[in-house]
Computed example of a mutant assay.
Amino acid sequence: MKTEEESSRKAEKTLKLITKLLAKAANTPFPAEAQAFQEHAERLMVRYGIEQATIDAEAGKSGRPQEPMVEERVEFGGQYKVGQARGFTSVALAFNTVRVLQANTPTKKILYLIGAESDVDQVLRLFDSLRLQLAAAMQAWWPTYPYKDFLSAQEKTLERRQFQLGFLTTVAGRIGAIYSAEVTHGEPGNELVLASRRDRADQHVNHLYPQIRAARRQSMSMGSRNAHSAGSYAGTRASVNAEMSPSARGSLKA
């Protein structure tokens, strides 16, 4: 059985390997090779989260301090804020151990990410990457979209928002599927350590917001299947866990 120190070293190596794989994916000119690097990185990203949860669980059993629970705030503004908040929420929840609360201001949608520090950091890192990837994907898609000249201004907005939702929910689905596979076919204790990690996140939510109540899901007009499919296809090619500068965080421009 691995010691906590050995497990920590393994998790650190996993994180470094993820970074190397994604660098290779970004630099190869061959799409199929890039996709293979990205898919490998995705699997390792999930395993890294499970490794961290396992280390945390072992610390708790032995009476040592566990990883701190944290809360981080992410804002979305502009005409796509409702769709972006919904899409990025699905990405965060795909991590299985992070909880998401939402709040509104007159001009913004705000997400509060709550969970173990390393889990929340991982989600923020992914958000940074996906904001940039999504902006690039839209810039490549929209000029060639054959139906745009026949749409009203409002319909154009809905189509672009639907593209974003297709992109983000596809990425979330990929991550969620990997978690399911790791629970089903991975180490026997994976489900238990993830459940313990989720419970700690839930307890922290209750501690921070004891009077919180569930809000009704905000209604949202939808775009076409064509736009959603285009975004979904772009999402299949998105890299996850890319390292991005904290200065890159911010709202995706309209």
Rank of each mutant, 00 (worst) to 15 (best):
V91M: 01
T169N: 10
P31K: 10
D121R: 15
V46S: 00
S90P: 07
R9M: 06
T170C: 04
G77D: 10
Q139N: 15
V91I: 12
M138T: 07
L15F: 14
E6G: 02
A242M: 13
Q203R: 09
L93S: 03
Y233S: 14
A254I: 15
Y209I: 05
Q66D: 02
R47V: 08
L113V: 11
Q35L: 09
T3K: 10
E42R: 14
A136I: 14
E58M: 14
A92K: 02
T89L: 02
V70Q: 00
Q133N: 12
W141F: 15
G78D: 10
K156T: 06
K148G: 01
K109N: 09
Q218H: 11
T169R: 07
K13L: 13
V98P: 03
W141R: 05
F30N: 12
I175Y: 00
M1G: 13
A116S: 09
A137T: 06
G115A: 02
A214D: 08
A57K: 09
A85K: 14
I114L: 02
T157Q: 05
N206F: 04
F76H: 10
S152R: 10
Q133F: 08
E75G: 06
E5P: 00
H204I: 08
H228Y: 14
A238N: 07
G186P: 01
A242H: 09
H207Q: 08
A242T: 15
F163S: 01
L252N: 09
K13V: 13
D202L: 12
T28F: 01
L168P: 01
Q79H: 04
A177P: 02
Y112V: 06
D202M: 07
G83Q: 12
R125S: 06
K81M: 04
E191I: 03
F163L: 04
M69I: 15
A242W: 07
E42Y: 05
T157L: 11
N27V: 14
